[in-house]
Design a protein around this nucleic acid. Structure first.
Length: 511
RNA sequence: GGCGGCAUAGCCAAGUGGUAAGGCAGAGGUCUGCAACACCUUUACCCCCAGUUCGAAUCUGGGUGCCGCCUCCA
């Protein structure tokens, strides 16, 4: 497998430091607000890498942090008059919710910055002790001049970096304009600060990642160098550059062997970001599009390239993935999935797959995760259904269902009759629907919004739909097309697509 | 200003020296009670200029345009 290493700026053969064991860290979110599609792309990209490495039989330990101490969190919490911890926990849960929706697998470790404050302090003390950091009035800064390779990721000399850095605050306490904070004094904010040898304060952002990586790697593997460090390419400078500097100064070892970065999601020709207020949250996108659509949209472009977010692009992605899914949906019956939607096959099933196709797929992904070509390969081999199913699941698509997040909810709201459902049992409800549907004049009324407090499980929904399909079939036989089309239309509104066949009963799927 | 990236059909997107994958949309057709789904057919000299080569979208040089980072950011 070859990956593009941003440290060397070359496509390199991937060779883990320790045989087939892979330690992999990707930068996670700062939890102060809902995540947007840019975060989704990053998460999906590195989820894919973890999945693919595992498919290649590497023993992967994936770490993704949660930054839960940060000025933005604290300021937002102040606005809302709640504790910073309360806010960050809420948005941690929201982030997890998004990740589950997108079928992003769980990292093996998900360290939260606040759980590593003592380790950060030790890390900083170590840097001070060996002379690469200094304290000024309760702040601690890293001295960039102590790390001669500074600028290696950015591919720029220290002098060149200084030249470009014209926006230095003249009141700064830094000795050098490129120095960065390891610890910031906040003597007057006891609720959101931590005690340290330098007084009350908070850690800088960069030190979090370095410390958590060092701590986890030491504990689990007794090493200090990651195989892979990944993140968005906006983090290359200064975040990753600074991580490199402080970690290597502290441990004497490089922080990571391979540095991988994903391209930004663009919207209207500009990078999508919180600060520009031009973002689409994952949650809002998932009200219009299916989770698989978002993954397809991301994987259709190479992970390093910029990608444009537009409504039509998402629609195109949805049509594209639906075509793949429709082609294989019949074959999905009886296939087992694990909780990350990975296909579970026994040896016989595995052996029956198209090995040549799997090999070509592997060759393509081995080339720096060339997912656009991998998807094209699947389109070209749609007749190899079981193999396509297997490979789609390696790409992290959730084939257990291809529905919109809210389709179940919208279904409940639009199909059920409020009166029929409010007190009656499901059986009564079906009978009621049946009665209502017999006369199409009443059908619209039958589809009136149901009450919020009524819950129907999926199986009873299924029987309601089946009943309506039976009615429709009957109507079609009687050439009562007005009624049959009406039923089809109402089901469509509820997010259910009917497919008719000549020689077998109609089927339905969720839109 | 410094550094990095990108430029291929209406849109998205592969291709890393041998005469342009794939997807979406569009058009025509088959299927269908009508649709949807599916299937078949159909759409490009690769930003510009110069060079290397028998041969370049692919390599070299020079332009032009767009984007990112240099401040928080996936």
């Amino acid at each position: 497998m070859r990956v593009f290493n941003n440290l060397t700026h070359k496509l390199e053969e991937f060779e883990p430091i320790n045989s087939n064991i892979v330690t992999f860290y990707s930068c996670g979110p700062t939890v102060y607000d809902d995540s947007h599609i840019g975060h989704a792309r990053s998460a999906i990209t590195w989820d894919l890498l973890a999945r693919y490495l595992r498919f290649k039989n590497y023993q992967v330990t994936w770490i993704r942090n949660i930054t839960n101490v940060d000025d933005k969190i604290i300021n937002r919490a102040k606005e809302l008059d709640i504790l910073a911890d309360t806010l960050s926990r809420k948005y941690t849960y929201e982030f997890w919710d998004d990740m589950v929706s997108l079928n992003v697998s769980w990292p093996d470790h998900e360290p939260r910055a606040t759980d590593y404050i003592p380790e950060m302090i030790k890390f900083i003390e170590g840097l001070i002790a060996q002379g690469s950091a200094y304290e000024v009035d309760g702040d601690v800064y890293f001295s960039v001049s102590k790390y001669t390779q500074y600028g290696q990721l950015k591919r720029q000399s220290i002098d060149a970096l200084k030249e470009g850095n014209s926006r230095l605050d003249p009141n700064s306490k830094k000795k050098d304009q490129l120095d960065f904070a390891l610890w910031k004094a906040f003597p007057n904010e006891p609720l959101s600060s931590f005690s340290s040898p330098w007084g009350l304060g908070r850690p800088g952002w960069h030190i979090e990642c370095s410390t958590m990586i060092e701590t986890i790697l030491k504990e689990k593997f007794a090493i200090s160098t990651l195989d892979i460090h990944a993140g968005g390419d906006d983090l290359i400078f200064p975040h990753h550059e600074n991580e490199c500097a402080q970690s290597e100064c502290f441990t004497g070892k490089p922080l990571a062997k391979y540095w991988l970065h994903n391209g930004m999601v663009m919207i209207n020709g500009t990078k999508m970001s919180k600060s520009l207020n031009n973002y689409m949250t994952i949650k809002s996108v998932l009200t219009k599009f299916k989770p698989n659509t978002v993954r397809f949209f991301c994987l259709q472009t190479h992970y390093k390239k910029q990608i444009n977010f537009t409504n039509t692009a998402l629609q195109a992605a949805e049509s594209g993935f639906d075509k793949l899914f429709n082609a294989i949906s019949e074959e999905l019956k009886g296939i087992k999935f694990n909780s990350f939607a990975q296909v579970q096959l026994d040896k016989i099933q595995l052996a029956s797959l198209d090995q040549a196709l799997i090999n070509r797929f592997t060759e393509i992904l081995d080339n720096d995760l060339a997912t656009p070509q991998a998807l094209a390969l699947l389109f070209e081999n749609l007749d190899q259904k079981p193999t396509v199913i297997y490979l789609l699941s390696i790409l992290g698509f959730d084939l257990r269902s291809n529905t919109k997040e809210n389709s179940l909810k919208s279904l409940m709201h639009s199909i059920a009759d409020a009166k029929a459902m409010s007190r009656a049992s499901h059986v009564d409800a079906i009978a009621s629907l049946k009665a209502a549907a017999t006369s199409y004049d009443n059908l619209t009324e039958a589809n009136a919004t149901m009450q919020e407090n009524i819950l129907i499980d999926k199986s009873s929904l299924g029987s309601i739909i089946e009943t309506l399909l039976e009615l429709r079939e009957k109507a079609r036989l009687e050439k009562n097309f007005e009624l049959s089309d009406r039923i089809r239309l109402e089901l469509e509104k509820a997010g259910i697509i009917i497919r008719d066949f000549k020689d077998k009963p109609s089927e339905y799927s969720f839109a």
